[in-house]
């Protein structure tokens, strides 16, 4: 059984079965990443292009590693949006790449909707590796994989997502997926960081972190974009850390077996205390490791090989 989609742009339209298929496929590749020779020939002869218009080290590296472990040819095409030749639209760039017979284009872009616009214009499969504040589906899928790997069930799971939800594509993808899977999603942060009408997506909003954390099974911290301080979203990093930073004390408010997640890179001492990041409840490095397996699964399914 394959994924009956040309592209993976967003988790919003995915069914529970499709999500399960991706996670199950990732499972079989997780085993590969543990072997001494971490390579399978599944995508031999296929070309994957990483088209990154925004700086990213971990996501791009993760996709590159995933593609290489599947024996695909990988091209990295990184460029800041501003350096795109004037007059050349995203679509022009992509059509040029497609003309070189790319099977899969992995796109990271600072504008919401860029992946969808691209997917409409090219025949290659498009995987959204983050578009503006919209979605980061592969990150959310690796988060789901990590939660499942820890033996937690999604139905009835209490998940707190803490931080700047407004500007977070990771948050949106997780909200779509987790609510679909039957989890209870709590968003924690000041109202300046909560997008308008967000409750209509079936989540609860807490301005008080201690209240929001009570009894949760998963604490998902978002990275604070420090440069947003000047944008009247929060007064100082100091006050933000005091109100919404995850400390060992606060972890105790959650369920005894709660796990702590973060999409990285972390601001130690801001949204997360160093001892929490390094504690036993932290699965931050598992997320990174699982990212490769999950992306192998996605590339495999999107290549048509599935």
């Amino acid at each position: 059984m394959g994924l009956k989609r040309k592209d993976l742009l967003s988790l919003a339209p995915l069914s529970v079965d499709e999500i399960a298929l991706i996670l199950d496929t990732a499972d079989s590749f997780k085993e590969v990443t543990g072997r001494e020779i971490k390579k399978v020939p599944a995508l031999r002869g296929k070309t994957v292009v990483n088209l990154f218009f925004e700086p990213s080290t971990r996501t791009r590296t993760s996709f590159e590693l995933a593609a290489k472990r599947l024996s695909a040819d990988v091209i990295n095409f990184a460029q800041s949006s501003s350096s795109v030749v004037k007059g050349e639209t995203l679509l022009d760039t992509a059509r040029n790449i497609e003309a070189m017979q790319a099977d899969i284009i992995v796109l990271r872009h600072s504008s919401a909707g860029a992946a969808e616009t691209l997917a409409r214009g090219v025949r290659s499969a498009v995987i959204n590796a983050g578009d503006g504040w919209h979605e980061h589906p592969t990150q959310a899928l690796l988060d789901l994989y990590t939660i499942r790997e820890r033996g937690l069930r999604f139905e009835g799971l209490r998940v707190a997502i803490v931080g700047d939800v407004s500007h977070s594509r990771v948050a949106r993808s997780n909200i779509y997926a987790l609510t679909k899977l039957g989890a209870e999603v709590r968003l924690i942060g000041p109202a300046t960081m909560m997008p308008l009408d967000i409750r209509q997506l079936g989540v609860q909003v807490y301005y008080n972190m201690d209240e929001g954390l009570r009894g949760v099974n998963v604490i998902m911290m978002l990275r604070l974009q420090l440069e947003r301080q000047g944008r009247a979203l929060f007064p100082t990093i100091r006050e933000y850390a005091r109100l919404y930073g995850l400390t060992a004390e606060r972890v105790k408010l959650a369920d005894a077996g709660a796990i702590v997640m973060h999409p990285g890179p972390i601001n130690r001492g801001v949204e997360i205390a160093p001892d929490v990041a390094d504690s036993l409840s932290s699965v931050i490095l598992d997320q990174v490791a699982n990212g490769v397996a999950v992306r192998m699964g996605i590339l495999y399914l999107m290549s048509g090989a599935g």
């Binding site: 919003a12 919401a112 909707g113 578009d131 503006g132 504040w133 919209h134 979605e135 594509r169 949106r172 997008p195 308008l196 009408d197 967000i198 209509q200 997506l201």
Partner: peptide, 8 residues
């Protein structure tokens, strides 16, 4: 709601 969903 629509801008929230679309991340715009």
């Amino acid at each position: 709601l629509v801008s929230t969903e679309l991340g715009l």
